[in-house]
Write a protein that binds this DNA or RNA. Structure first.
Length: 444
RNA sequence: GGCCACGUGGCGGAGUGGUGACGCAGCGGUCUGCAAAACCGUUUACCCCGGUUCAAUUCCGGGCGUGGCCUCCA
């Protein structure tokens, strides 16, 4: 089964062949840890986890390296920390540390609840500052970066093919720039590699004074540290194409004699919520954390995979309900599967640029064994109790009520049996009479 | 303003130059004391206007709509 992936670099689907089948390398831009991750952040986590699992299936679990970083140096973090400190007499740097630690821990918990495997490595920016400084020095030595007023900037004009990922000619971008250009920049599009820090901002000693790295350099450095100069796949949200990924390319290629950073660039589409774009002002900012309070992680995962990863997607309550119903039906039958196997239809769908909606359609047509195997390949666990409602239900009491109702039915006292059924339904317990007796489920 | 993506039935959502995926809902049926569930069957579509073609939902051009990027962003 040959794997084909859409490559943003060429804007077309290409056959995927890793540089080294014994070490397939993938990097995905992870979260900036200053606030709860929202449901849009869950999309790349889930989508690239499916790709990770598919690659492990094809090349063997020990032959795939998946790196997802944690951005814990960032001005949004610093701003939030200042807010959190308020008037209190505590060290802001300490607040920064607490904030990132806490947010990081919640993120880990949340993505795990969504059924994602832990990546092979989860490097943190704060642990790679020396590597970033080294890369910046290399860029300065190569004549691709310059120092100005305590900043170090990438000299975009020196990189002839700058803009090749986003396909934006440099002169066009300069003409369309809508922001005031910092006076120390040679060109409007030059971006920061290093900037100075004051006493309320985390900083590290460097040849350019105490400061901190710009955003883009961390990914370039961590990729190099974990996987070398050229990797197979680099992923992230489509909004990262410009400027983040464009700048990563400029830095890494600049520091590596022009060797490509990644051979395949993959980008997931955006998410709307109930037809509207998610924003704090609209008040429809949905975090993964709060969704997980009401919904099983598997349901959120399934709902995400019902749309192709490159398509724009609308996240809705109706969709989640439908996802839950489908998954519940499947789990009922698939938990009994003794010999799961991967169906060809499913594998073909996933191999065609991760066509998960088609893969799900294949599961609807699949045998029981293929259903079980397919669910597991996609990261679902039919054996788990994750679909059970979080609401506390008294199983013993329900069983007793069912017994009483069946006794009433036997005596043809239907008034009483219907009363018991309605009473349970009022508590959200839906009874189902089947050939093998009466079962129940929590109705939503 | 510049660049880019998307627009499929009541809903979700694949796909294709010619035989109307798949799921949900609806409808009909089996089952049931009645329901629910389950199972069987089944109706409904390709934003608009041109062009290319024997044939377009699928290719090309224009329009409209939605969203993204150009500044932090999954």
């Amino acid at each position: 089964m040959s794997l084909r992936l859409y490559n943003t670099l060429t804007r077309s689907k290409e056959a995927f062949e890793p540089l080294d089948p014994n070490n397939v390398r993938m990097y995905v831009c992870g979260p900036t840890v200053y606030d709860y991750a929202h449901i849009g952040n869950a999309r790349p986590a889930i989508v690239f986890d499916v790709l990770f699992r598919l690659l492990r299936h094809i090349y063997g679990p020990e032959h795939v390296t998946y790196v997802r970083n944690i951005t814990d140096i960032d001005d949004k973090i610093n701003a939030r920390a200042l807010e959190l400190r308020g008037e209190r007499n505590v060290d802001v740097l300490e607040v920064v540390r607490e904030l990132t630690e806490r947010t990081y821990a919640v993120y880990q918990q949340d993505v795990a609840a969504l059924g994602n495997l832990p990546p092979t490595f989860m490097p943190r920016a704060t642990e790679h500052v020396p590597q970033m400084i080294a890369m910046i020095r290399t860029l300065i030595d190569a004549g691709l970066a310059y120092e100005a007023e305590g900043h170090v900037l990438f000299d975009v004009a020196k990189k002839a093919d700058y803009g090749k990922l986003s396909r934006r000619p440099l002169d066009e971008m300069i003409a369309g720039a809508r922001v005031d250009v910092a006076p120390y920049k040679r060109e409007a599009m030059d971006f920061v590699l290093w900037k100075p820090s004051d006493s309320t901002t985390p900083g590290w000693e460097s040849p350019w004074g105490r400061g901190r790295p710009g955003w883009h350099i961390e990914c370039s450095s961590m990729i190099e540290a974990a996987m070398g100069e050229t990797i197979d796949i680099h992923g992230g949200g489509i909004d990262l194409v410009f400027p983040h990924h464009e700048n990563e390319i400029a830095q890494s290629e600049g520091a590596h004699h022009g060797h490509p950073l990644a051979r395949f660039w993959m980008h997931n589409g955006f998410l709307n919520v109930e037809g509207e774009k998610m924003s704090k002002s609209l008040g429809n900012f949905v975090t993964i954390h709060e969704l997980l309070e009401d919904w099983p992680g598997d349901v959120l995962r399934f709902n995400m995979l019902r749309a192709h990863y490159r398509q724009p997607m609308d996240w809705t309550l109706a969709g989640m309900k439908e996802s839950w119903a489908t998954l519940e039906r499947w789990y009922d039958v698939a938990e009994a599967v003794s010999a799961p196997r991967i169906g060809e239809g499913l594998l073909a769908a996933l191999s065609d640029d991760l066509n998960t909606p088609l893969a799900i359609a294949e599961l609807h047509k699949a045998s029981l064994q293929e259903l079980g195997g397919g669910l597991m390949l996609l990261g679902f666990n039919p054996m788990s109790e994750r679909l059970a409602s979080k609401k506390a239900v008294n199983k013993v009491e329900i069983a007793r009520a069912i017994e009483a109702r069946n006794a009433a039915r036997k005596a043809k006292n239907f008034k009483e049996s219907d009363r018991i059924r309605d009473e349970l339904l009022a508590q959200g317990i839906q009874l189902k009479d089947g050939p093998e007796g009466t079962t129940w489920e929590v109705k939503r």
